[in-house]
Nucleic acid binder design. Sequence first.
DNA 1: ATGACTGAGCATCTCAGA
Length: 257
Amino acid sequence: MRVATWNVNSIRQREGHVARWLERVQPDVLFLQELKCEEAVFPAATFAALGYQAAVVGQKAYNGVAVLARTKFEVADRRLPGLAEDDAQARYIEVACGGMTMIGIYLPNGNSGGDAGYDYKLAWMALLRARAAALLAADVPFLIAGDFNVCPTDGDFAPGAISPDDALVRAPTRAQFRALEWLGLTDAVRALHPTGPVWTFWDYQAGAWPRDLGLRIDHVMLSPTLAERLVAATVDRDERGREQPSDHVPVVVELAD
DNA sequence: ATGACTGAGCATCTCAGA
């Protein structure tokens, strides 16, 4: 089974990129982030024509997550359990598919909104950990894929690509990510590529792409039984070099059947 | 030393991104 995640920075701007990528890579499941649109204008027909059914959690202008799958699935949740009822940020989708639970996330960046914005990020991470703990306790095979907005270690950003006090690298952010790992989740890319740069994002500004000043912030985290099935984890960095690209590239994981 | 790009929307500026 091939599962992927991609922050597309507007699905309406990147509809063609995603369609061509699906045809080329043929994933079973693709999680999308930063749709920047409501469900009503998500280009579902384009992907249906390629054999992919969509489930969309949309919002005008900001955030937005979706899953595309060519195998049958059912949506289990559209909001991270524990968040306030009136929390309208479209950042979470959970589906049951292929005998496992799959979660797609767009984790809050945490650099905007001052202290409240950063506190929201940490609270979100604590709730995500609680959800992971519940699934582990229930012995459900699961994965969490998406834009985590976390560089887990100093090896996960190019020197100079980011400020030391950025919300993506701040100590409390990393502590939350580390806690998720120590619950028993495996960072798929790092499990197979333990050292060296594996960037998934390059800023549009300051020549970050030509200078290769990237970050590794898009991750696929596997529960123990899925980690045992992990055979490949790759980052499709060529997508960053295309015309009018997203600032993120796809991360792809292969699980043995 | 400095600036710097992209997208959406009650839009010709602001907010957010990371």
